Computed example of a mutant assay.
Amino acid sequence: MQEPSKTVLRLTALPARRPTEFTLEPDQAARRKLARELELTELSKLRFSGTLRPVGRNDWQLDGTLGATVEQPCGVTLAPVRTRIDETVRRRYSDSYTAPDETEAEVPEDDTLEPLPETVDLNAVMAEALTLAVPAFPRAPGAELGAQVFAPEGVEPLTEEKVKPFAALADLKKKLGNGDDTGNGGAA
């Protein structure tokens, strides 16, 4: 007989009247594997702890905290950027929840609500929460994406200032050059 997993919890086997506490601190090998999956340079610390408690007759709620230290390349310079992540994690598993069938559906207001599963995989919840918390475009201190301006020889380059909606109106006003700020073109 296989020993039950400490990270995959069968909800029917948990106490129905009190919370079940959990703490996950993956070892170095597990952190390296997760770092590769998330395209991180390093995942030096990772801790996920909290409780899974029954709510009402059939529903469950997971409340936890995720702490991690990640390193990833700067989106501009590729220099290493270390980020400390401290996130609150909440999942509500409801027996009455049904996912929309349409291919295009509105996102529900409560993004913590999920269908009631038979088991809750704490490793999967931790990995999902970390994935959502990792910065999408990390920046090293002082790293800026400079403006690049290109144009064929003899042509004035198109800059961001010229693309702005009122830049053309300002140019037109300058061309008219009547100095009248009333907007009536100098007519009396």
Rank of each mutant, 00 (worst) to 15 (best):
P4Q: 12
P4T: 07
L9A: 08
R10Y: 11
L11T: 05
A13R: 08
A13V: 00
L14N: 04
P15G: 09
P19R: 09
P19E: 09
P19H: 07
E21H: 11
T23Q: 15
T23M: 11
L24K: 02
D27E: 13
D27L: 04
Q28F: 12
A29T: 15
A30Y: 02
R31D: 08
K33V: 14
L34Q: 06
A35Q: 05
E39A: 12
E42S: 12
K45Y: 09
R47H: 06
G50W: 05
T51R: 12
T51M: 08
P54H: 03
V55F: 06
G56R: 10
G56D: 06
G56M: 07
N58Y: 09
W60L: 03
Q61P: 00
Q61L: 10
D63P: 01
G64W: 04
T65S: 14
G67A: 11
V70C: 05
Q72N: 01
Q72E: 02
Q72R: 13
P73N: 03
C74G: 06
G75I: 02
G75V: 04
G75K: 06
V76C: 05
L78E: 08
L78K: 00
V81H: 07
R82M: 03
T83K: 05
D86T: 11
E87G: 05
E87C: 08
V89Y: 02
R91V: 13
Y93D: 02
Y93K: 01
S96K: 14
E102H: 01
E106P: 01
P108D: 14
D110P: 04
D110E: 14
D110N: 13
D111M: 14
T112E: 15
P115D: 04
P117I: 03
E118A: 11
L122E: 02
L122V: 03
L122C: 02
N123F: 01
N123Q: 10
N123L: 10
A124R: 12
V125P: 03
M126Y: 02
M126K: 05
A129S: 13
A133L: 08
P138Q: 04
R139M: 11
P141Y: 07
G142I: 06
G146W: 07
V149N: 09
F150N: 12
F150E: 15
A151C: 12
V155L: 15
V155F: 13
E156I: 03
E156W: 00
P157L: 03
L158V: 15
K162M: 15
V163E: 15
K164I: 03
K164T: 09
P165A: 15
A170W: 01
D171E: 14
L172F: 09
K173D: 11
K173N: 04
L176V: 15
G177M: 10
N178E: 14
D180T: 11
D181T: 15
G183T: 09
N184W: 13
G185I: 07
G186C: 09
G186W: 08
A188P: 12
